[in-house]
Design a protein around this nucleic acid. Sequence first.
DNA 1: CTCATTCAGAAAGTCACTATCTTCTGAAAG
DNA 2: CTTTCAGAAGATAGTGACTTTCTGAATGAG
Lengths: 206, 206
Amino acid sequence: MSGLRERRRDKAMRAIQECALDLFDERGFAAVTIEEIAAAAEVSPSSVYRYFGTKEGIVVADEFDRMNPADLLDPGDPVGSLLRAVRAYEAAPEAATGSADASTGPQAARSPWRRVRYFFAEPSVRVAVLANLDRASRRIAPLLAAAGELTGTQARVVTNALVFGYFAALEQWYLDGGSRPIAGYVEEGLRPLRGVLRASGHGGPA
Amino acid sequence: MSGLRERRRDKAMRAIQECALDLFDERGFAAVTIEEIAAAAEVSPSSVYRYFGTKEGIVVADEFDRMNPADLLDPGDPVGSLLRAVRAYEAAPEAATGSADASTGPQAARSPWRRVRYFFAEPSVRVAVLANLDRASRRIAPLLAAAGELTGTQARVVTNALVFGYFAALEQWYLDGGSRPIAGYVEEGLRPLRGVLRASGHGGPA
DNA sequence: CTCATTCAGAAAGTCACTATCTTCTGAAAG
DNA sequence: CTTTCAGAAGATAGTGACTTTCTGAATGAG
């Protein structure tokens, strides 16, 4: 299934991401050029664009993107299933980068939360994250529309509420210094929405 | 208060926006350069950047940005006051561009809705709109936090739900061809949210 | 009238991103 | 093992958005 080619590509992608974050941490996002990142990761600038599309994409790119939202989100209980996903992701930080090779960098650098700082500290990255959430919302909304009694417009609105509400909760977590678990912020923040979304669906499990 | 300078600036800004939209309509957003826009509007490229910051800003820039959100949004009934604002804006399209001078272009071109097409048809403009909504949300959230029993996190989540929910409704309006009034889409789309937001506030008027 | 401020234009530079072409290489067929 | 080939990586040359800096001029205050 996964040939040598794909493994090389995945390795290159991880190298680019980590070299880029190292450079960003050191000198700031804006001050680092794509050429420098490519040189540090020992690939060509073209490859950086092939893999990530944009400079912000290096930070934002997420294995999450390639997932099928239907596997993650239960249309009957969107808030609850989102919460479960957050908890699962938080509990298994290694799932984010894969535990293939421990020798490619320092351990702390491999935390999936390292990137998150740039989501909120670097305006252009923040915008890229918003664009990503918007795309995710457009993929998820049809699921809600198909499952519940929501109209198409309502499904879009509710999905945006959910997705961008999650973003707001994540930002609060970040602004608090990232010490307490994220799931707490999501649960608290989305609590006002939970009742509505349950009532309009077919009713999820307890 | 409004000196000669400011009037010249406002006039130049409107000229840039209309010339730009003319060119975009004619040849597409990406195919038009800032230099061409500046030439058509008879200003320097520097001025375009001084006024709008980015190419997308020409389309997205909105007198809405300079408003105080407190004048528009009632924390006791956020959905209701948003709906009233939409209806008011929709009823008075001339408020958007000002009725100062009718000789600066064809009448149809002055519709404030002309720009909206690019919100959804041009990806980079869409992203700029999302960034704008995000900024608006961050200004509005403190109002909700101060007025109701919502926590800070909840206020941010609910405001994002409101603002990006409105965006979703607007997109549905656009996708439907823009024939029926926008307020209808907003009312229908935000209906699931209305109950929650009323219940958590101090209760607005009927 | 004089002066400080502020704003428009000019000009040069940076760099993200694209398009195209060539080269290489992993993988499969013979 | 050799050959073949599709697709991926690299090299190269742009384009144009955006920044920075400087200069001159219009404005409004004193």
